[in-house]
Amino acid sequence: MRSWLAIVFLLLSVGGSSAAIDAVNVYEPRKFGHFLGDTLERRVEVITSGNTELFTAALPRPGALTYWLDLVSIDLSEREENGRKIYDITLKYQIFYSALEAKQLDIPSFPLRFKNPNSVAPNGEAPSEPSDASQGGNYSATVPALRLVISPLRDIVLDDLMPEKTGDISDVMRPDAVPQEINVVPRERLLLASASALAGAGLLLLWHYAIWPFARRPKRPFTQADRQIRSLQSGGAGEAPYRDSLLILHRAFDQSAGRRIFAADVPEFVAQHQRFSTLLPRLKSFFESSQLYFFSDDRRAAEDRFPISDLARLAADLAREERSAA
C-alpha cells in the first residue's frame, strides 16, 4: 500500500479571486524496499479553479530520466467537479539500479506550469517552492524529488535462497536461455520448390518466345524470320535486303508447312493454320508481290506494292499469331 503523503501546496486564493491553483496532491509509493527492475507509481492530483489550467505540454515525457531510472509512462486524465478542474497524473517509473548495498537515490523533482494563474500569490507558499510567480504574476508548482532506498538483490538471493552457490557471477546467474531453434527446413523446401518453379516458368517463357537456348526452335519459324528480317533492316547489310527478306519469309512458310508453299497454296495453308486467317489478304498480297519480284521483270512494282516495312510488319504479325496459337 502506498503511503498517502499530502504535500499540499496550499494555494488558497485570497478573498474574491476568481482563478487559482487550488491544490497539488502527490500520492507517493513506499520509500524503501525497492529492487532492481521494480516499477513504482506516483500519482499527482492537481486542482485548479477559474480559468487557470495545467500546462500539460510541460509535463515530463517517458524515457530515461537518469542512468538508473526510466519514466515508463505518464498518464493524464482531466475532469471537472464543482467548477474546478481536477488533473490526475500517473507517473510510472522503473528502477535499473543494481545496488550492491542499500542505497538512497532521488527521483528528481519536476515543475508544473500553469496558464492564467492570475490570482495573487498566496502568502502560504509551498514550502519547497520559492516561486518566482510573485514577480511575473505567473505561478508554478513543483513535484518534489522522492528519495528511495534501493536494496541489493544479490546478497539476499545468495544467502537466503541459494546458499550452495558461490559468489561467482557465472554461478549465480541463470544460464542463458537456449534460443529456440526455428525449423527452416520447410521454408528451404518451399524456396527450392518456388525457385525451380520459377526456373521452369522462365525456361517455358524462353521456349515460348523462342529465345536462346530455344532460338532455333523448329516450331517457331516465323519468330526466327521476324528476327532475321529486323536484323537485316537494322543492319542494312546485304546488297538486296528486300530480296533477302522475301526469301527469309518464304523459308519460314516452307518450314511452317513442312513443304514448299507457293502463292496457289496460300488458301490451303491458311485453312490448315486457322490462326493466320485474319492475315489472309496480306498473305495473298505478299505472295503476289513476291511472284512479281522473282518471276517477272518488274521488281520495282513489287517493292512498291508491298514495301519492306509492310513485309517486316507482316513477319511480326505472323510471329505473334504463331506464338498465340501455341
Binding site: 507457293f262 502463292a263 497454296d265 511472284q291 518471276f295 517477272s296
Partner: peptide, 10 residues
C-alpha cells in the same frame, strides 16, 4: 499471267 511461276511447273 505473263510470267511463269513455280505453280505452273508443279
Amino acid at each position: 499471267r505473263d510470267m511463269v511461276v513455280p505453280e505452273d511447273i508443279r
